[in-house]
């Protein structure tokens, strides 16, 4: 992704979903990807190898919070970690939801190490076609 498209994404993101809420620096921040479908937002959070029991998903005051801990697996006796680039720590992401999102209908799935959060919009915020009446149809 080049810089200009990144900036465009940020602007779109600001207009349509709302801001990312600042996270504290003592947490790792797993990567987010956000899709805008007509009737819902889909938020993907990369959490490879994190057991479902160690992932928490909450909505509070219009803020969606993904948090948990990626724990180092226990090694069998005699095993040695020779090299490690992966991050083992608490993680947290917070996203301020747009007012069009129905937070009571949010659902989530975990597939292939990706947490997929679906945030539907209120139906009355969706675009609808308005019939234009002519003077002949107005009684």
């Amino acid at each position: 992704m080049n810089l200009s498209s990144l900036e465009n994404s940020f602007q779109l993101f600001s207009n349509l979903v709302g801001d990312l809420v600042p996270d504290t620096d003592d947490h790792a921040r797993p990567e987010l990807t956000i899709f805008d479908h007509e009737d819902r937002y889909v938020i993907e959070c990369d959490l490879p190898g994190v057991p479902l029991d160690d992932i928490s998903l909450e909505v509070h005051n219009g803020v969606l919070e993904i948090s948990g801990e990626r724990k180092k697996p226990e090694l069998l006796e005699g095993a040695l970690v020779r090299y490690d680039e992966r991050v083992w720590s608490h993680f947290q992401r917070r996203i301020k939801l747009d007012k069009s999102v129905d937070s009571t209908s949010i659902t989530a799935d975990y597939n292939n190490g990706v947490l997929v959060v679906t945030a539907p919009r209120f139906k009355d915020t969706l675009p609808r076609k308005v019939t234009i009446r002519t003077s002949k149809t107005v009684s």
Partner: peptide, 17 residues
């Protein structure tokens, strides 16, 4: 804080026995 990114795609661990 760029340095606290979450390992990322392809991040590697090597364990030996």
């Amino acid at each position: 804080t760029v340095e606290t990114r979450y390992g990322g795609l392809g991040a590697l661990s090597i364990i030996e026995t």
